[in-house]
Write a protein that binds this DNA or RNA. Structure first.
Lengths: 346, 346
DNA sequence: ATGAAAGCGCTAACAC
DNA sequence: GTGTTAGCGCTTTCAT
């Protein structure tokens, strides 16, 4: 039932030429006489011939495969970013090999090895231990070993690792967010939903504190609620915030999931968003648009983000000296979850 | 900077054995003396050696790669299913090569060829043209050609294609759903959110009509609202349903996205779910739990679904005569979006 | 312009 | 047990 796939030898025999000629037609690496080229091309079409990528990769020692290792593809934030990476890769003739670590360290290591074994030309890692504030030494060692063999790009920052890295300008994003809220008259601003042990969240919290002080607001410890990035976590955070004697007038969620949970908590307690409490989320995934009210959210220009990751990878593959670090800018997408609380000056 | 990866020849030389001995240690295909095995193992560990999967795949003519081609990984339904397939594949020592068709026919074809080129051992296709009610002949031809070379499994039904297929028992799912609503006293039931040209939706609509008739309810054409599976589409459908002089007391969404949109439309028109209108969705993705009220939803046992797809693929690879078609059962997950409207018999 | 031949890294059949 | 050798399917010198 299953026929064996044709090889260039089969084509060559039938076209009465040598395998090299078929290869030349395939790769366009050298000129072939019109008559032979026509004969070969006809057979290529006839059999819808596909050169064996394994053999090709083996002989070229470059398979044009880009490995992407992601924490959990089910998370809309990761899915959005990964899809942009895929598009960028396809546009440059690379095939993406996508691996899901499912947030398990062990699986992360396994996949890294698997990608090495498949001779991916480079690996882009998104999430997982690449997010740790305090890097896991084992992981750093692993990354460095991999990076010795093929270029590795992480989306995040990993002190001690000598791979390249691309990360979001969280300081700037936070500044934008807090100053936007302040400009609308908010003085009691909370932040919630993430864990300090995650670098991006740590940075957000730190910048939040810094910005509070800079704008003459007391950074209150109870306005910083740690969570676990899930809907339920966000729900719990918001519940705690709403239980405070001095309720915040605005809250910033470190991701969309947390914001969605917060929205639930608010609605259950008859706290209206944004009338009674404003809400801003980070990541601007489709969830921001799906819930009501639609969430004002920090967006990252995902296409550019993916493009940057991929182009860095390909430049590293090509041996060009690509920058070690690239910052991605954020911008605020204004929707319906923030209220102006400035006293009107009638 | 980038060192070349070690080969079994390097290991062999350093261990003063032959490459075959290294290979034997690697594969466990034959016995090796303890002393040589120890020497080789030490070096394998020392260099964290990874055999080149391309070369291995080339010589074994089986790379243990499972190709998965999915319509759009950003859709939570697909993401959930794909992740279960991945888990099943990893458990059996297969690596998954995940391709995203982004709902583009052209990309779908390209990926199919790419997977062929990478010599995937089998391909699982989820969504895209595999969902068409009236199969695209070009696509069917493509599938059949691929299926001649390697086993192909689609999640869906594709008349004319001789690949294997796994699909949900939509008739039964629909029966369960409608009879559940009827048991709670609903007599005006609508269905919405999908397009008739998609087989699963067509089946749902047809079964809906059949069930209405069977239960003595007039199937009203205006209770069937076609949509495009998006949140906005669901919003529009619900808006139309709520504009009807005879509003339904319950509505069934063909997927979660549509249901979420419907929820928005209802909330904007101050129609309370489930008090004023009950809502049931299909697919039971995380969205069902995220929105409020939480949605009662048709669930598919995703782990079993993924497991079935993968095991069918692997059995086909092994040449066992696996069934051509497998049905996946559905069950209803009861949450908070359905109201009992039966007159209480005090 | 074209064919012969070497090599990519591995496995497996074959000798010893 | 262990080494030698012949592929796996392709690309790419190197001759001609």
């Amino acid at each position: 039932m299953l026929k064996k796939a044709k090889t260039i030898y089969d084509i060559a025999r039938e076209a009465k030429v040598s395998p090299s000629t078929v290869s030349r037609v395939l790769t366009g690496s050298a000129r072939v006489s019109d008559v032979k080229r026509a004969a070969v091309t006809r057979l290529l079409d006839k059999y819808q011939f596909q050169p064996n990528a394994l053999a090709r990769g083996l002989s070229e020692s470059n398979a044009r495969i880009l490995g992407i290792l992601v924490a959990d593809i089910r998370n809309p934030y990761y899915a959005a970013l990964v899809v942009e990476c895929e598009k960028a890769a396809y546009n440059r003739g690379y095939t993406v090999m996508l691996c899901n670590a499912l947030n398990k360290n062990e699986l992360e290591d396994t996949h890294l090895e698997k990608l090495l074994a498949q001779r991916a030309d480079a690996i882009i890692q998104i999430g997982c231990r690449a997010d740790d504030l305090v890097p896991d030494p084992d992981y750093v060692a692993h990354v460095n070993r991999v990076n010795n063999l093929i270029p590795m790009i992480i989306s995040g920052r990993l002190p001690g690792a000598n791979c390249r890295s691309v990360y979001i300008n969280h300081a700037e994003a936070m500044r934008m967010t807090i100053e936007y809220l302040i400009s609308l008259g908010h003085e009691d601003i909370a932040i919630f939903g993430g864990a300090r042990r995650v670098r991006s969240t740590y940075d957000k919290f730190q910048n939040y504190i810094y910005l509070c002080e800079r704008h003459g607001m007391l950074p209150r410890e109870e306005y910083i609620q740690e969570g676990d990035y899930t809907v339920n976590g966000g729900y719990d955070c918001m519940t705690r915030l709403l239980a405070l004697k001095r309720r915040p007038t605005a809250a910033v969620a470190v991701n969309d999931y947390s914001a969605v949970g917060a929205l639930k908590a608010a609605s259950e307690q008859a706290v209206r968003v944004p009338l009674d409490c404003s809400l801003i989320s980070f990541d601007n995934t489709f969830l921001s648009e799906v819930v009501s009210p639609k969430l004002t959210s920090v967006d990252y220009d995902y296409p550019a983000y993916g493009e940057t990751l991929v182009s860095l990878a390909l430049r590293a593959i090509a041996g060009e000296d690509a920058p070690r670090e690239v910052l991605i800018d954020a911008k605020l997408v204004i929707r319906d979850s923030v209220q102006n609380v400035k006293p009107t000056d009638l």
